[in-house]
Design a protein around this nucleic acid. Structure first.
Length: 703
RNA sequence: GGAUCCGUAGCUCAGUUGGUUAGAGCGUUGCAUUGACAUUGCAGAGGUCAGUGGUUCGAGUCCACUCGGAUCCACCA
């Protein structure tokens, strides 16, 4: 049994990875953060999974019934983005294919990605319970999502409200924040005069988007504005449409930007939308979803927004409505794919009221042990300032919103307990109460990815069922995450777990640092600075890569690295592996004739090395208990190389035959200590030791 | 704009509740070695712990500010 594949297959055949809820051991549960289904696992995943695996192996050896639960997240937006890019290469698009065909191909792509994930996990030696693996779109999770949605609805926590959608006119779709880039641009700030009806007086407002004047429905000023309050209640003339629009007061207007007066365009700005809503104003769109001016724009209709801006400037000049133009540099959101400036549009989205959930979370959050501990404050602070959660996404990949509208009675898809709509996973069998028909149409949108992954700690264990697993393994003993999703994911798991199960999701929440490039930048596809873990692993071996990653795993600490730096570190640990094999060779293969066989620690040197071994065992154990993987690996590394090899083994060369049992003993104990970190090398050597059990995996942790 | 984190040897990183001469790996310098060693061993050089001020008998560690780097959230007409 030499090759990694053989060893891994052996472990799997022996079913060492499987949790056993029915056995009498104490449980220890570890939840793998489901990686995004986006094509490949990067170095950060390799680090996470190496940490989880080390902990799982350690706890198994300590005698626990370990559940390391694997899973994959469907990652709505990211997956759809990645997949659509692939389709684009074939000259296809989601719209060309249609929802059904697109979904069929998406699932095929999912299967491909799955294969590559499993290949990586196998070669990395990850000892997860694969039979329990969960995918975020599995039926199990669908059931939980439906239940979650239903409960929220019954508790009056769901509503539909306005949301500003960033619309890419070129791609013809709403895009998410993560799909946007910000470009610092020098633009112009136009100061436009709005004349009062039947008067020479006017109000000046500042705008960066004069083309939207066509959709202006009011001018708003801060209450009791020194200059403009005398105009409150009067009307001004929209310079383009000549419509008379009211001057209103609203506290949301800022006094320290522009002129202190604001044109209200509810169709194109969230703040304007809110002010408009509060004042019962109409919503109009001057720019349509194609990025072109609507009919509202008169002679400018049909032009692109950017062209219309130039024309608008001319028009304003002609009308003598332009007071001045200032240079204005601000960051403009553009579409990551096509670099088109995105158009903000207002649309109706589903929301969850978060206040009650946050309050319950805050009462219980101190039961979670955050590593590092300052994350308790960081997350608590965020929970204190919680805002409602927009959960609908204009995508096809995800859990479809389980709401059905009666197309006959409720064609505009209004939402409310008194409206003609139902919550159901499948098309409702019941009739519409109003028309007695069954003309049900499902909500087009899907749910935010975090709506399902926020339930990961309990949905994966069978909730809303009352399962044995839920009882035994939750709260999870250990969860790990990158710090960047502490609010998006971690905070939500805490809120949702407490809300639906009355339990904290996990007892220990470990935040690792972010791996970055040498300049401190995040790894990203667009920068092309990523490091392929497969390359490193192929060159230096799994165990070397794992060891390198543990050195970067200090809680909450970022690590700068590069392919070269990682390579050097891997090389170092490759040499360490070689050292270990040579120690074995010296002790076992080059065993002298007449070597003693009874273990007796009596010689001064023997006692010394045994003492150091015991110290090392204590340190490694303590550091693993405290999740200091970087220190634990350092402890054992120093012991093996410097205490055991350089010092003790050198000394025994004079009394080789006598020392034989001690040498074998120390080596065996050392292999056990190293096994969580270097599973393959240790198993390979262990199997060749004169005395050994079936596998090092089922050995008892030294104590 | 709000919040948070980081800045320790040439490079990448450790440094537990403040307590002697600040550690590791790689690199570097010298010596040794065919040794169990896809080399390895022994010895050495290298740091005003970003800066300034404060608390303290004592600060890399605690506090304030400044400079530099990063992340998340919110984005202003």
């Amino acid at each position: 049994m030499n090759s990694q594949e053989e060893i891994y297959r052996f472990w799997e055949e022996k079913e060492y990875f499987k949790a056993d809820p029915s056995n009498s051991k104490k449980p220890y549960s570890i939840l793998m953060p489901p990686p995004n289904l986006t094509g490949e696992l990067h170095l950060g995943h390799a680090m996470q999974h190496s940490i989880l695996d080390a902990l799982a192996r350690f706890k198994r050896m300590q005698g626990y019934d370990v559940l390391l639960l694997p899973g994959v997240d469907h990652a709505g937006i990211q997956f759809e983005g990645t997949f659509n890019k692939l389709l684009a290469k074939e000259g296809l698009s989601k719209y060309k294919l249609g929802r059904e065909e697109w979904l069929k191909r998406a699932w095929e792509f999912r299967d491909e990605v799955y294969k590559s994930f499993h290949n990586v996990w196998t070669v990395m030696g990850i000892s997860a319970d694969w039979d329990r693996e969960v995918f975020a779109l599995d039926e199990k999770i669908q059931k939980a999502v439906l239940e979650e949605f239903k409960i929220f609805w019954e508790q009056d926590l769901l509503y539909k409200g306005a949301y500003i959608v960033q619309w890419c006119p070129k791609c013809g779709t709403a895009i998410e924040d993560v799909e946007m880039e910000y470009q610092e641009r020098k633009e112009k700030l136009y100061f436009v005069k709005y004349n009062l009806v039947d008067s020479d007086e006017y109000i000046t407002i500042a705008t960066a988007r004069p083309e939207t004047i066509f959709a202006d429905v009011a001018i708003a000023i801060y209450p009791n504005h020194p200059k403009y309050s005398k105009f409150t209640g009067k009307k001004v003339v929209n310079p383009f449409t000549k419509k008379e629009i009211p001057v209103i007061e609203d506290k949301k207007v800022k006094t320290d930007f522009g002129t202190g007066a604001l044109k209200i365009t509810p169709g194109h700005d969230l703040l304007d939308y809110e002010i408009g809503r509060d004042n019962g104003l109409e919503i109009m769109h001057a720019v349509g979803k194609d990025g072109k001016m609507t009919d509202l724009a008169g002679d400018l209709s049909g032009l692109k927004a950017q062209e219309a801006r130039v024309k608008s400037e001319e028009k304003l000049k002609e009308l003598s409505a332009l007071e001045k133009i200032e240079d204005y540099s601000h960051s403009v959101p553009v579409c990551e794919r096509c670099k088109t400036t995105v158009e903000p549009l207002i649309s109706e989205e589903w929301y969850v009221k978060m206040k009650p959930l946050a309050e319950k979370a805050l009462k219980n959050i101190s039961k979670v042990n955050f590593i590092p501990s300052n994350y308790l404050d960081i997350i608590s602070k965020w929970l204190n300032e919680i805002h409602d959660w927009s959960i609908s996404r204009t995508l096809w990949w995800g859990h479809r919103i389980p709401v059905w509208y009666c197309e006959t009675c409720n064609p505009s898809h209004e939402v409310g307990k008194d409206k003609d709509m139902l919550i159901s996973f499948e098309k409702p069998k019941e009739k519409c109460k109003n028309c007695q028909g069954s003309n049900w149409v499902q909500d087009e949108q899907v749910l935010d990815t975090w709506f399902s992954s926020g339930m990961w700690p309990f949905a994966t264990l069978g909730w809303p069922g009352k399962t044995k697993e839920l009882e035994r393994y939750s709260p999870w003993n250990f969860e790990i995450s990158a710090p960047e999703i502490r609010y998006l994911w971690i905070a939500r798991m805490i809120m949702l777990s407490l809300w639906f199960t009355d339990k904290i999701p996990f007892e220990n929440m470990f935040f690792h640092g972010m791996l970055r490039d040498l300049q401190g930048r995040k790894f990203s596809k667009s920068l092309g600075n990523g490091i392929d873990p497969n390359e490193l692993r192929n060159e230096w071996g799994t165990d070397s890569l794992r060891m390198s990653l543990y050195t970067y795993s200090a809680p909450g600490r970022d690590g700068k690295t590069s392919k070269q730096v990682m390579g050097e570190r891997c090389k170092n640990f490759r040499n360490f592996g070689t050292k270990l094999k040579n120690i074995y060779r010296f002790i076992v293969e080059l065993k002298p004739e007449g070597a003693k066989s009874n273990l007796e620690i009596s010689h001064e040197d023997d006692q010394e090395i045994n003492k150091k071994l015991n110290e090392t065992i204590k340190e490694v154990t303590k550091n693993l208990e405290n999740f200091n993987f970087h220190l634990a690996t350092e402890n054992v590394y120093n012991f093996v190389w410097h205490e055991f090899a350089d010092s003790y083994i050198e000394k025994t060369k004079k009394r080789r035959a006598d020392a034989q049992p001690v040498l074998e003993h120390i080596l065996t104990e050392t292999l056990k200590l190293l096994h969580p970190f270097m599973p393959f090398t240790t198993e390979e050597i262990y199997q060749k030791m004169p005395q050994h059990k079936e596998s090092i995996m089922i050995e008892t942790w030294p104590h």
